[in-house]
Amino acid sequence: MSAIGTMVSARGVVGQTLHELAAEHPHVWGLTSDVGDPIKAFAQAFPDRYVDVGIAEQNVVGIAAGLALEGMMPFVAGMAPFISMRSLEQNRTDVCYQDLPVRFVGWGGGLTTGGGSTHNAMEDVALMRTLVNMAVVSCSDPNMVGAVMRRSMAYEHPLYIRLGKGKSDPCIYEPETMTGEIGAGLVARDGGDATIMAHGELVAEALAAAEQLAADGIDARVVDMYSIKPLDTELLLRCVDETGYLVVTEDHLAFGGLASAIADVLVDEGVRPKGFRRLGVPQLYTGFGSAPEQWVKYGYGRDGVAAAVRELLA
């Protein structure tokens, strides 16, 4: 566990946590479609509970479903775009229809691979959260994935755990802050003038935006809605009630992800914020470049978030 600001590899946390969980629980398996390097230590320690199928996402998810039917708890390590899209029907029909405890651990969420649109995962949250029985969690802090994985041992349903690039990211919380509870949100910074909601790597951007706003005398709250499904509706409604204004930013299409989930709740509850803005990837296929460069280009990184809050409050 690491203090705030330390750089940690979330993929490394996946590997270490899987290794620990497998030592403790004989029904934990690790599967991968040719991205097994981060779980190498687990694979070497528990070779009879590790399967690398090569580059074959449909197959790896079907096998995971078969293992879960036999009472196993498989963690499938894959790349977010492919584990959400290539195997989508297996995710739905083999895993979710049968409500099996398969864990999909996908890294490269959003535009973080820099690989261009073939490798972007900007639809994954929308696709995965629409599946009945599937929970969707997006990790902002590299250690959060470990907390969620541990917590998931008592969770008997399908679960998608989304990571950013996951190679080297700053810790944003003290370790004990992260319970990994599925269905909860986390107030990353308190404030009373407006709420910024984000998930994954955009939480750090939202915190940076809040710093900028503080310099202007605006006291912004930042909420880490890491559990996109189920959503912490109580926290959401409280924030709207207490701060009035709401900006949602995410490394995902602006429509279909967290912002849409939030908008659904607000409409259903008949709650109208004083102002609401959603930031994310517009309806286009993005080009190349690093994720932070693209967050700037499409206006949903720290500057874009701060500007949206200022506009709302103006």
């Binding site: 399967v51 197959n59 096998i63 078969g66 293992l67 039917l69 036999e70 498989p74 029907e89 029909t93």
Partner: peptide
């Protein structure tokens, strides 16, 4: 029911056994 799904599932059952 959706075709092409059964054998991967069966492979999972075989790995477990």
């Amino acid at each position: 029911g959706s075709l092409g799904h059964g054998l991967p599932i069966a492979v999972g059952l075989a790995f477990a056994a």
